[in-house]
């Protein structure tokens, strides 16, 4: 579904990615693991186009989308749950979700998407009229995922969705991600939380200093003590 080859990118003069290769299969959860500063977030941002790729290629269903701007990617069914959520704090929960359905392709499916979001997160329905900035951290994360779902996506890029949440909520977030897969969505996840993400993932990559150090099925990682010791610190 998504194929990234030799992706290079960075910020200003500083190169962070030195040729990232990875592949995401349809209706799977793929996780990118790695220590802080390995380039996990940068990988997602470069794939989505928030920062521009310097070199390499991103393909989506065989089509070259390396230079496709983010809004066009959303039109094609790719969206992102950004690190730090990036909600619209002074807008209501409802308006945040409404903005998720901004494109006409998503607007057509508005009712269905909203039902899915409210079924997954009944709490958001209760807080419909509340401003997003007043929600708790966990609720904000739900809203960020909910807003992404409103775009009616096929592929969701998730950047550290469990960051800053209490352990109980972390578990909830990972359960939600698994449910999304069962709904037929494809997820590319970036996480620090090694165990929880491996538990729900089908495939995993280990990013090390801007390059993929290992890639394969989750079982392979779980069985390899070397990988766990060398790159994941567990």
């Amino acid at each position: 579904m998504l194929k990234v080859s030799k992706l290079e990118s960075g910020y200003g003069e500083m190169q962070v990615l030195w040729g990232v290769d990875l592949e995401v299969k349809e209706k799977s959860i793929t996780t990118v693991l790695g220590p802080n500063g390995a380039g996990k977030s940068t990988t997602l941002k470069a794939i989505f186009g928030i920062i521009s790729p310097w070199n390499g290629m991103v393909e989506y269903f065989g089509e070259d989308v390396t230079k496709t701007p983010p809004h066009k990617k959303v039109e094609m069914g790719i969206t992102m749950v950004p690190e730090g959520r990036h909600l619209f704090p002074n807008m209501t929960v409802e308006d945040n979700l409404l903005m998720g359905a901004y494109l006409s392709r998503a607007e057509e499916k508005f009712e269905d998407s909203l039902e899915l979001v409210y079924t997954l997160f009944p709490r958001l329905k209760e807080r419909e009229e509340q401003k997003a900035g007043t929600l708790s951290g966990g609720e904000q994360q739900m809203l960020a995922i909910g807003r992404a779902l409103m775009t009616s996506p096929n592929l969701i890029l998730m950047d550290e969705p469990s960051q800053g949440l209490a352990p109980k909520l972390v578990k909830e977030v990972f359960e939600t991600i698994y449910k999304l897969k069962e709904e037929g969505l494809t997820i590319l996840l970036v996480e620090q939380n090694v165990f929880s993400s491996l538990d729900i993932s089908d495939y995993a990559y280990v990013l090390h200093e801007g390059k993929i150090a290992f890639g394969g099925s989750v079982d392979e990682i779980k069985e390899s003590e070397d990988i766990k010791k060398a790159y994941l610190g567990v």
């Binding site: 950004p82 619209f88 807008m91």
Partner: peptide
Amino acid sequence: KAIRAVVEDKEGAMVCGI
């Protein structure tokens, strides 16, 4: 509303397809 969204959070607006 899209303009307000960009003012409130540019990256958030991008992931909505704005």
